[in-house]
Structure formats: structure tokens, C-alpha cells
Write a protein that binds this DNA or RNA. Structure first.
Length: 374
RNA sequence: GGACAGGUGGCCGAGUGGUUAAAGGCAGCAGACUGUAAAUCUGCCCGGGUUUCCGUACGCUGGUUCGAAUCCAGCCCUGUCCA
């Protein structure tokens, strides 16, 4: 029987680490980038294509799936993996992020969050216990604790109160997860550190989480508008506050240069909608920086998106063709742009894993910066 | 030849005496997007002057009026119908 969850670090280079997480549904090479598949689909991509980009794990979302098709229906249909045709690990977010992003439709209390569905206005309640139940019904491999992700710029008092509530919810999440014994025996639970930009709050949050005990530790509440400098400022101390022998997951991040900077500071896992959403919106990520394929200058450019990219898109189609597809609103444009972006992200992660393994991460980082941020 | 309808900024299309450089859409030129209410959103989009300035503009010419894309006359053109 394969381990439920085992993280082993193969090499470190400065604060950066590379290794592997072993789970029953497969291995996750770290540092890892997890494409976001909120509604049981990585938008514009088939599961086999997602896998072909190099992804070991994808995300699903508690909030979206509880509303449609509902967790109970998903369970009747054999769980999320069976439903969407992805047999490797899936990490499910707890709905905590929607507490912030849908704040106009929520009412928060110590018990949990009362939501009004953005789909039909129907009322729902999300608590740590219910979030754990939903993630169990979905058949999640990595379950995220139910937390509160405060928006950027909250004052110290609110940041502290929010962090402390998230820590109480983390303990309830732990208990709720453990109550689902059968599911808990084959999946993992991650806690989420909060505390805004404050080092002391972050330290208290990390201590509270470590006391409870989790399989992995996420850094939450970043990339919400504070800017890269402020985010890196937090990452200069936050990863070291978390247990060194467990994966550290920076939630919702980020741009390619965010990933490189965060890995350099000791982060092992990431997820972000950017490669998929930007792909649909006409932005491609390349080794030479982002490209807006809609721009007129690409209309007759026969070069690939990224001359150093070996992905199926770059080896087959020109910028001119992608420019035409995207401008025409053709769905293939969104599909190909997404495919390239996910390949690019996974190539970037592989490059970082290799560099850390070779002890040359600093050189990798300066080479990346020189070209990407030129 | 006659009867209607109509000619508005690259295109479509509102407006029918002043608050109109002229709604809105499209096209065009850029920008944004970070645990996805996003195949979305934002800005610009007559010319010139790098805030509230000037010029030109609603088929053409002339007229009425303090003032016209909006009213009148003639002309030109387009569509439909009748001959």
C-alpha cells in the first residue's frame, strides 16, 4: 500500500527545496504548480492535455462544486476524479477564498459563513465541518482547512481577529477531517497560515497550526493586491515559520516571476488561475515575458509564441495564427493559449526543480530574471 | 415618369431647434487579470494643442433663426413599390 502522504526533500539550495510528495493517486514533484480546475474542469483543456503539460495535481473548488453539481451528486457519481476523468491527485480549496471574493454575498460569523449563491441567489452555509464534509464527498486528495482570507489593506485589529478565527476554524477543520475516517486514511489535510503582512501575526498563526498538526502548510492571504515587493517581504520570513519537513504551499500565486521568487524563499507548491485565465484573455507567458497576442504587431508574425518552447502549440502554430484565432473569438484560440501557458508554467517548475537539484538555483534565477524582465 | 422611405463620425445605428464633437454597438489601438461570479473587464478611438483650447463635422448649395444634424427651398444620390 502506497503511503497516504509522504513528503521527501531530495535537495535544497539556499532556502529552495526540491522533492516529491507521494500519495495513493500519484506523485507530486516539488516545487509544484497546480493548474486550477474550479468547476471540475481546467477550462479549455482536457485532462490528458493537462497531464501532458507536466501537471501532477490539479485544483477543484468546494464552493463552486457544492452549488453545482453539488457534493452529494458528485459522491453519487463516484467522486470528482471519476466525474471529470482525472485520476491523479486533486487538491480542493475549502471555499475560504470565496469568503473574500464573494464578500458582497456573504455573512460571516464564528460558526461559519452564510453564502448567497452567485448562480441563483439560494442560501447556503459553509462551516469548517461542512467544508470538510464536502471535500470528503468530492473525494479530494489534499483537503484545505476552511479559513478566512482577508482582503489587502485590513487594519491590524481586523487582521489579528481574522487570523485567530481562521486558527479556530483550522482546529475544527482538523476534527471534521479526522471524523471522516475512511477518507482521512487515504487523503491529506493542509492548514492555512494567515496574519496579513505582519511577521508576529504570521508567527502566531504558524505556531497555532503546527500545534494542531497538518500534512502540509499553506501560506494564505497573499497576492490579494499587496504587490510583489510586499509579498516577497512576507515570504522572507513566513516559510521558515512553518515546519521544514512538510510542504509549504503559497495559495493563489502567481506570475512566473512570483513563482521563481517564492521558490527561492522556500515555497514548494503553487496554484494560480493566471495561465488559464490569461490564456483565454489573450495573454501568453513566454521566457521573454508576457505577450498580448491580440496586439497588431503579431498579425503577420510567423514565429511561435516562445522560440524556446517545445510545447505542441509552439511547435505547430504561429503567433499570426493565434492572433487570428483570439481576435476572432474562436474557441481554439483559448484552448491553444491555455495549453501553451500551462506548458510554460510546468517547464518553469521543471527548470527550477532541476536547478535546485544541481545546486544552481541562483544562476537559474538570475538567468530567468534577465530574460523574463528585460 | 410617379409614390413613398431614406442619406449621421471606418461600419451599423440613436438623435429631429440650444445642455451635441454628436447615445449605443461593431471594428480598430492599447492595458489589466494572482486559493476563477472572468472565452472577462478597463481606457482610447474627427484633426491639432500633452487639463476646462482651437478647427472641422451629420449628402450638396442656399435660406429661416440669437442659435440647425434637427425647420424651409433647390439639387444630387440610395432603396422599395407603381408605371
Amino acid at each position: 500500500m502506497t503511503d497516504r502522504f509522504a513528503f521527501s526533500i531530495a535537495a535544497t539550495d539556499g532556502a529552495a527545496r526540491t522533492g516529491v510528495i507521494r500519495m495513493q493517486r500519484g506523485e507530486i514533484r516539488t516545487p509544484a504548480f497546480m493548474p486550477v480546475g474550479t468547476a471540475a474542469t481546467v477550462k479549455a483543456m482536457r485532462p490528458a492535455e493537462v497531464r501532458a503539460t507536466g501537471a501532477d495535481i490539479i485544483l477543484g473548488n468546494t464552493y463552486h462544486l457544492m452549488l453545482r453539481p453539488t457534493a452529494e451528486r458528485m459522491a453519487r457519481l463516484g467522486g470528482l476524479h471519476n466525474f471529470m476523468g482525472w485520476d491523479r491527485p486533486i487538491l480542493t480549496d475549502s471555499g475560504g477564498y470565496q469568503v473574500m471574493s464573494l464578500s458582497a454575498l456573504t455573512k460571516q460569523s464564528e460558526e461559519g459563513v452564510a453564502f448567497q449563491s452567485h448562480l441563483d441567489g439560494s442560501r447556503h452555509m459553509l462551516t469548517p465541518e461542512r467544508s470538510m464534509e464536502i471535500q470528503r464527498l468530492l473525494g479530494s486528495d489534499i483537503v484545505m482547512a476552511f479559513d478566512e482570507c482577508p482582503p489587502n489593506g485590513v487594519d491590524d485589529k481586523r487582521a489579528e481577529a481574522s487570523m485567530e478565527r481562521s486558527m479556530r476554524w483550522a482546529a475544527r477543520s482538523r476534527a471534521g477531517f479526522d471524523a471522516g475516517e475512511e477518507h482521512a486514511a487515504r487523503s491529506a489535510l493542509f492548514g492555512i497560515q494567515q496574519g496579513s503582512l505582519d511577521e508576529k501575526l504570521r508567527a502566531r498563526s504558524a505556531a497555532a497550526l503546527t500545534e494542531i498538526g497538518f500534512d502540509g502548510y499553506a501560506i494564505g492571504g497573499l497576492a490579494v493586491g499587496e504587490g510583489q515587493a510586499a509579498m516577497f517581504g512576507v515570504l522572507d520570513f513566513a516559510p521558515a515559520q512553518l515546519p521544514a519537513d512538510k510542504p509549504r504551499y503559497l495559495m493563489g500565486v502567481g506570475k512566473p516571476d512570483d513563482l521563481v521568487g517564492a521558490v527561492a524563499r522556500g515555497v514548494d507548491m503553487f496554484d494560480c488561475v493566471l495561465p488559464t485565465r490569461s490564456g483565454r484573455n489573450g495573454q501568453a507567458f513566454t521566457r521573454d515575458g508576457p505577450v498580448n497576442i491580440r496586439n497588431a504587431k503579431h498579425a503577420e508574425d510567423q514565429a511561435p509564441l516562445d522560440s524556446s518552447c517545445a510545447c505542441p502549440v509552439c511547435t505547430t502554430w504561429s503567433r499570426a495564427y493565434l492572433h487570428h484565432l483570439v481576435r476572432s473569438g474562436e474557441m481554439l484560440g483559448a484552448m491553444l493559449m491555455t495549453q501553451h501557458n500551462l506548458h510554460f508554467y510546468q517547464d518553469l517548475m521543471q527548470g527550477m526543480r532541476d536547478a535546485i537539484g544541481a545546486g544552481s538555483f541562483a544562476a537559474f534565477q538570475s538567468d530567468f530574471d534577465a530574460r523574463y524582465r528585460k
